[in-house]
């Protein structure tokens, strides 16, 4: 089996960096349309004129029909949880987001448990990935009815949609 190396010793290690500077990606306008909708507390999706699928957040191209999804639709605030996962309790110093410790920065309490969920809003044919609020890991289940929670004063940002909370019907 030994081919180049008769003796399996550690080789020399050299340091190397991979510094390719910043990329200049081209962004699309769909996300802008979506956040403009959030500002008015509307959930905007794109409608494919070919197959009639509605995708939230708006998407550019329908792969099935190979055409642009250039129509826009507003979907309901109410929806259904299609999937969820449960995080372990958030500990101080365990996570860093762009260099900030979320517990220290007061974004979240120590020991809190996050429940990221997939929600399908009524009228949409797609999932949206967000967080379940005002509930507990014991309550969450697939098929749970929820409604969107917006911040008090939406400013046209993705964070305007805080998450979803259980719907009392």
């Amino acid at each position: 089996m030994a081919y180049l190396k008769d003796q399996r010793r550690e080789t020399m290690m050299v340091e190397g960096s991979w510094n390719i500077g910043a990329y200049r990606y081209k962004g699309s306008t769909q996300l802008q349309e979506y956040v403009d909708g959030l500002k008015e507390k509307k959930l905007i999706g794109s409608l494919c004129p070919g197959c009639g699928k509605v995708i939230v957040q708006p998407r550019n191209i329908c792969g099935r029909c190979h055409r642009r999804m250039d129509k826009r639709m507003v979907v309901s605030h109410k929806g259904t949880i299609t999937c969820f996962v449960i995080s372990p309790p958030i500990e101080k110093g365990k996570y860093k987001i762009i260099g900030i410790d979320p517990v220290e920065a007061g974004i979240i309490q120590e020991g809190a448990i996050l429940v990221p969920v997939f929600v399908r809003f009524d009228g949409a044919d797609s999932n949206i990935n967000t967080i379940l609020l005002n509930s507990s890991p014991e309550q969450v289940h697939i098929g749970m009815r929820v409604k969107a929670v917006f911040v008090e004063n939406p400013e046209g940002k993705l964070s305007d949609l805080e998450g979803v909370e259980p719907l009392k019907e």
Binding site: Y25, Y34, S159, G163
Partner: peptide, 17 residues
């Protein structure tokens, strides 16, 4: 791209957690 539109920190945390 999403960050340019003010992605919420909590959502980011959920992803990394």
């Amino acid at each position: 791209h999403a960050f340019g539109y003010g992605l919420s920190m909590k959502n980011l945390l959920a992803t990394s957690a």
